[in-house]
Every structure is written in structure tokens, then in C-alpha cells.
Design a protein around this nucleic acid. Structure first.
Lengths: 143, 143
DNA sequence: GTTAAGCGTCAATGTTGTTGACCTTTTTGC
DNA sequence: GCAAAAAGGTCAACAACATTGACGCTTAAC
């Protein structure tokens, strides 16, 4: 029997997914924790980075949390000058959120950790494997 | 430009990973929540299923939680007759944990939800894609 | 027989989320 | 122009879940 025996055992797929995801999130988690930030902050940074000018309400909907839960971490990020909140000129009730220069730098740093990790794995496994990975993950994400 | 433009943008890989993992965990989470259980209970069931006869201390180490944090959910699972705890004959201080018939059934049900989801994605994407997925995930998990 | 290991539990505390209520500012509809 | 509604902020009460510290119990080891 080859040493790839039961290499595609469905249970093995579950474990691979679990441990791969852990490795995938460990890097950013460490960097954030060193700054006293958590995953909520990361998600806030990420969403605002992807949607500059987003309103607080839209961010609440996007993250699926209550406004009270968002308030504290968002305020921290604004106080640390990682996120900028400017009153919208069209509707002065609305605050337009965007990343400051520092916020962009941190977000880029966090993203780089993950893209580097993925990039190394893709490079090691080859283009076909990379294509297959993308196809399967795309299919799963659409579930 | 083809509609697969920037289909392998590193940022897209991050998003795919995130949403694929959410889909991967959503099914078990729903089933567990319907029974008033959480992810801790799932992890306990899983580890004991993989390591029948494991001791409480070893389980604490494996899960990386304090014994006080483990105590409550573990007790629930024992009271519900999902997990069996028997005194070790060699060392009567030690309790050997194992899944009861009900526990095995629940664990199998949880696992099936995930293997079915993965199996459908693998079937849709083909054998080569499946191989690639496994290769990349294996590589990541080893990081 | 004293020491240590494995386990269980009580207490105090911290974090993080929730809902409900109330407030201000600003826009909108009549 | 004025009442209603929307966007946002904050306070309070509460619940879930984790932590550390301390203590007690049973059993094994030297």
C-alpha cells in the first residue's frame, strides 16, 4: 500500500481544512494581539479598507453586530488614528469611514502575512494545484 | 479581458478562504445550536472520538483551555449521555473518556454534514482540483 | 507516611457580546 | 415650518464564556 493511503479520506479533509485555517489566521492574530487588538478590529479594518466611505450603519450590517458592540472597538481605532471618520457632505448625519495612512499600513501588513503564506503554498504545489484550490474554495464559498 | 480577470488575485484567495470556512462550519454550528451546544462541545466530541480513552488532563492540553473551562461543558455531555467517563483500571485517579452510542451518532452526524459538503464540492470540481486542494491545504496545515 | 498527581468545584474577575432605553443632530415629508 | 424619522452615540442591565486562585478529595509513588 502506498504511503498516500487514505490520503483523501473525508475525515482527513476536515482536519486539513481546520489546521490550514488555523495557520491562515494565526499570523494576523499574533500581530493584532501585540497591539492589543482583536479579530473585531481586524474585520473592521478589512471592511473599511474594501469599502472606503462606508457608513456606520452599513458597517454594522456588514459585520452583523449590534451598534453597541461596534462602538467601542471602532472608537479605539479612530482614537489610534487607524480609521478616519468624516461627516458626509451630502448627509451630515452620516459618518464616512475610511482608513488613515496608518490604518492602510496596518491593513496592508495583515493582508501581506496571509497572501505570503498562501503564495508560498501555491508556489510549492504548482499552478494546477492552485487552480484546483481556487475552484474548490470558490465552490464552497458559494454554498 | 476574460471574466476570470484577477481570479487569482491574492486578496480574492483570502476572501475565498474566509467564506469557504464559514460555509464549512455553518452546518455543524446550526445542528449544535439546536441542541443547546456550542463549539467547545463539538471540539470535545471530536477529540474524544479521535482519542478514545483519553484522560481529562490530556483533553485539557489538547484543547488548550483551563480545566475550569472544560469542566462545565464536559459535565453536560456526560449528563446527556453523549460521553462516558470510566475510572481507569490502571490508575484509579484517571477518568477515561469515550463516546457513548449517542455520542458516536452525534459525532458521525456532524462529520457527515462536513464530508457531504466537501464531497459535493470535490465532485463538482473534478479529481484534479480535489488533488490540488488537498496538496495546498496539506502544505498550509504544515506551516 | 508524606508528597505529588489527577480531578472537581467555588469564587472573583475580565472580556465581549446582547437588548433596551434615551439622547442629539440632521434630514425628510406634509 | 414643524412633526416624524433616520443616523449615530451612550448608559445600563444582563448573559455567555473564559481566566486565575484556592481548596478538597482520592489515589499513586517514593
Amino acid at each position: 500500500m502506498p504511503d498516500t493511503f487514505d490520503d483523501k479520506d473525508p475525515r482527513r479533509a476536515i482536519e486539513r481544512f481546520y489546521f490550514a485555517y488555523r495557520a491562515f489566521t494565526a499570523g494576523p492574530d499574533r500581530l493584532l494581539e501585540a497591539r492589543g487588538l482583536g479579530r473585531v478590529h481586524h474585520r473592521i479594518l478589512y471592511f473599511i479598507g474594501r469599502n472606503p466611505g462606508i457608513s456606520v450603519g452599513a458597517l454594522i450590517d456588514a459585520l452583523g453586530v449590534s451598534k453597541q458592540a461596534l462602538n467601542a472597538p471602532l472608537r479605539e481605532l479612530i482614537e489610534r488614528d487607524l480609521i478616519r471618520a468624516e461627516t458626509s457632505p451630502e448627509d451630515r448625519r452620516v459618518r464616512q469611514l475610511s482608513l488613515s495612512a496608518h490604518g492602510q499600513a496596518l491593513e496592508a501588513q495583515l493582508t501581506k502575512i496571509q497572501t505570503d503564506l498562501l503564495g508560498r503554498a501555491f508556489a510549492d504545489c504548482g499552478g494546477d494545484a492552485t487552480d484546483g484550490w481556487h475552484a474548490v474554495m470558490q465552490r464552497l464559498a458559494a454554498s
